[in-house]
Computed example of a mutant assay.
Amino acid sequence: MPRIIVVSSSPLHAGGVAAALQGVEGWVVQIGRADEPADAWVLTGEELQLRGAQGASGLLAADADAPRLRAAVAAVLQGLSVREAPWLGSSNEHEPLTPRELEVFELLGKGLSNRDIGGVLGISAHTAKFHVGQILAKTGAATRAEAVSEGLRCGLIGL
């Protein structure tokens, strides 16, 4: 039975996070300290940091809803690391990528130029350039390489 410790300097915030995790059958959720033995720890602050006993970790927005938090903790308990990227549509702060932008992003990850992206998708190079600009803006990346790095790290695109 996995033991999860919620660590926070704010008792109110710790209580809310613990309450969000209480509904999972088989989990023992407690408020405590980061040095207590557990299978996973949830540290609250400006973001929710997850740490697993197996070395897995996670990072979520502080306002993550209960289903996202439970899914992230379950992943960390399985030894997976998770990182929420606001531009994937998980947060209302940033606009999510459109299906076309995801197609362009995949081709961007393969190193294609705007002209080549346009040729593959049957759009103009100018339109491809627009989509690349939108991807850069939504991911907060300054360069194509930085955007691709972020997309690879989050598992959104493959090589």
Rank of each mutant, 00 (worst) to 15 (best):
Q49R: 08
S10M: 03
R115V: 15
S90Y: 13
S90Q: 14
L69N: 06
P2E: 05
Q22F: 05
G119P: 02
T98V: 05
N92D: 15
G16A: 09
S91I: 04
L88Y: 08
A14T: 10
L59E: 12
S9E: 15
L77H: 08
L80R: 14
S149E: 12
G89F: 10
G23K: 04
S91P: 00
A145H: 15
Q78L: 13
T44Q: 03
G58N: 07
L102R: 15
L136W: 07
I5N: 06
S9D: 14
E95T: 15
G122A: 04
P86V: 06
I5G: 10
L43C: 07
I135H: 10
P37S: 04
A18P: 00
L69D: 04
L121H: 02
F105E: 06
R83I: 00
R3G: 00
A145W: 02
E47A: 11
V73K: 10
G118V: 11
L156K: 09
L102H: 15
G52L: 07
L80E: 15
S91C: 12
G79R: 09
E36V: 12
L107D: 07
A53E: 10
R51G: 05
A85M: 05
L102T: 05
D39H: 13
V28N: 12
A71L: 12
A40Y: 04
V24M: 11
R51H: 11
S9M: 02
I123V: 14
A125D: 13
L50W: 09
A72Y: 09
P86Q: 03
L60C: 10
E106T: 08
I135D: 00
N92I: 11
L50C: 02
S8T: 07
A56M: 02
G122V: 10
R70Q: 15
G52M: 10
E47F: 11
V120L: 06
A14Q: 03
E25T: 06
V6Q: 01
L21C: 01
S9W: 12
H131W: 12
A137E: 15
T143N: 07
G155P: 00
A137L: 13
L12N: 01
E93G: 00
I157R: 08
I123E: 02
